[in-house]
Amino acid sequence: MRHVASDIAGLFPTMDLSRRGFVVTTLAAGFALTVQPVQASTITTDTEGLVAGEVQIPVADGTIPAYRAQPAKPGPHPVLLVVEEIFGVHEHIKDMCRRFAKQGYLAIAPELYSRLGDVVAMTDIKEVVATVNKAPDKTEMSDLDATVAWAGKNHGDTRRLGITGFCRGGRTVWMYAAHNHNLKAGVAWYGPLVGTPTDAMPTNPVDVAGEIKAPILGLYAGLDQGILKEHVETMRAKLLETGNTRSQIVVYPDAQHGFNADYRPSYNEADAKDGMSRCLAWLRANGVGQEEA
């Protein structure tokens, strides 16, 4: 059952739910309502050989739900943070965690919008965007740090720490790489690179390029209507300017934004498969997934 603060307050009117400020405390089942109907191309990964399901992550001001998938065999396993799209930790993000777990990772996706709104249940894309744009980078960084700490206590090897993310989560990959210098590597899927500063997002990836120490692979779409060619070229130039020669950006010329989202019309099977192959190779080549000697 999904628990939303307003519903609980109606049952227990004497409870002070505002103190914690969490709207979503349990992950939803299924796909985000904004992106229905789900396409026939949708991939479903089983849990055979895995331990998978919802967990609760202690954070600075309470707990947030997360989806975790990892091999059933004893660890410790390399840790991979999986950062959601603007649609929340819905079935596609859970499936991505299972796909990575099949490759040997403790893959975990925290619900970073849990304080702001139930984006999985929203049906208006404008409401979704307005909600996620209120998510402060500072809070996201803290929540991801807390997720890493949880993984380290639950059969994860945080010395082999990676991150991947999609859409807004792709932007978070770049930002977290600048924040956490213990990160080994990251893969950003079509994440925004530039933007107008706001209170929640005072800087963007191009602004923090010089603080990124880990090698990041960016996977971008040539037909993206929001992340333009000049944005990509600006980021490439910033990386070179600041000496980050290990990071790379690959652009798929015939792909649209969301080309890995197999549940949406934007899905491009060939580019998604190539991107996943590059993603796994990048992580392993940069110390995320390699077994310790």
Rank of each mutant, 00 (worst) to 15 (best):
R159P: 00
M96D: 11
K73L: 13
G218M: 04
A69F: 03
V128F: 05
I43F: 10
Q39D: 09
G75S: 07
L80W: 11
E91I: 06
G117C: 05
D157A: 12
S41V: 08
F87Q: 01
V251D: 09
E241N: 04
L223H: 13
I216A: 07
A151Q: 06
N133D: 15
P71S: 07
A107I: 06
L50C: 00
A60N: 12
L27N: 01
R20G: 15
I57S: 02
R20N: 15
K229W: 10
A285Q: 08
T123S: 02
M122N: 05
M122Q: 07
K102I: 05
L183H: 03
M235H: 04
I8R: 07
G21N: 04
G88V: 02
N133K: 15
D118L: 00
S277D: 15
I216V: 14
F12E: 08
D254P: 00
N260S: 12
V38K: 01
V119A: 04
E140Y: 07
S18M: 10
D46I: 10
D118H: 02
P78C: 01
G258A: 07
F31A: 00
C279A: 14
V4E: 04
I163H: 08
G156N: 07
A32L: 05
T164R: 02
A121E: 04
G191P: 03
V55H: 01
G30E: 04
L11C: 07
H181E: 11
A214C: 06
A107L: 10
N133G: 15
D145V: 11
Q70V: 12
P58E: 14
Q256L: 15
V89A: 02
D16S: 12
N133I: 08
I86Q: 11
L223T: 06
P74I: 13
A130S: 13
L50T: 00
R115M: 08
A177F: 03
V4A: 01
L11Q: 13
E84R: 14
A177W: 03
T131Y: 09
